[in-house]
Amino acid sequence: MSEMKKIKNLKEFSTSADRFEGANLLCPGCAHSIIVREVLNATNDDLVLAASTGCLEVCTAVYPYTSWDASWIHIGFENGSTAVAGAEAMYKALKTKGRLKQPDRNPKFVAFGGDGASYDIGFQWISGCMERGHNMMYVVLDNEVYANTGGQRSSSTPIGANATTSPAGRVSYGETKNKKDIVAIMGAHNIPYAAQVAPNKWKDMVKKIQHGMEVDGPVFINAVSPCTTEWKFDPKDTMHLTDLATDTLVFPLYEIIDGHELNITYRPKNVIPVEEYLAAQGRFRHLFKDEYKYLIKEWQERVDANWAYLNRREEARV
């Protein structure tokens, strides 16, 4: 067992040697690579990585280039999780047979997927991996839309958002279905660790990633990733949007241990009204018209109810 990388502060963290390269083709200001960097830099161990089809996969493996400095595989839209699970099963088998060439090394198995690949298309595959108990980590880069193919709605798209398959206009206010609560679903698999993270709270994120890499068993991480193209905001405001997402409690940061021990890991000092989060994004612009204003109130009520629910779960340890 190798030692956990010690990261006390940001200065210490900044001595990490990145294993993700620039000149990938992600949009300027994309939060995907910020999240990927924070995950990869959280450990010094070898990495076995996979990605489901999505922005990250398409933009980091454009022939003849690769942006990854570790073993990386892509197969299909749905099976980033099972690709890594297969590699992990083989590693375990070779270890039992004593046929590993470098048995002292302690590789970590991590799969990345967008919200489309995780909430919709690869859902059954991820559920299978969690149920079979592979020693792996699955990280969702949740930008709430199929950004790579032109902004179609996914089951992660929240109510009121304007997406190309649920456009807002005279007839409709955009997406009408509520967002799927993926962390609770994965927590209900009774896996050792499920958590929601945000790239702006890097310390919280690194702590959760390191914990997830240490535990034996499947780990599920949901990371909020503001999308400058589809959420329609200026690229320089990515971190501002992430701050708004965590401080309005639209993306509360919490963890679920063994499926029943819920801990809220970040409580904002000043909770910001959800209206500010909605106002910062072009995809919610139509909500500020008179006929749709009631939706903002509903948004706030929904966010408050979810926060109260999380607090109740934390208290009751269920």
Binding site: L10, E21, G22, S33, I34, T238
Partner: peptide
Amino acid sequence: WIYCPDIS
């Protein structure tokens, strides 16, 4: 450094 998306 931490928030640069392009390792620049």
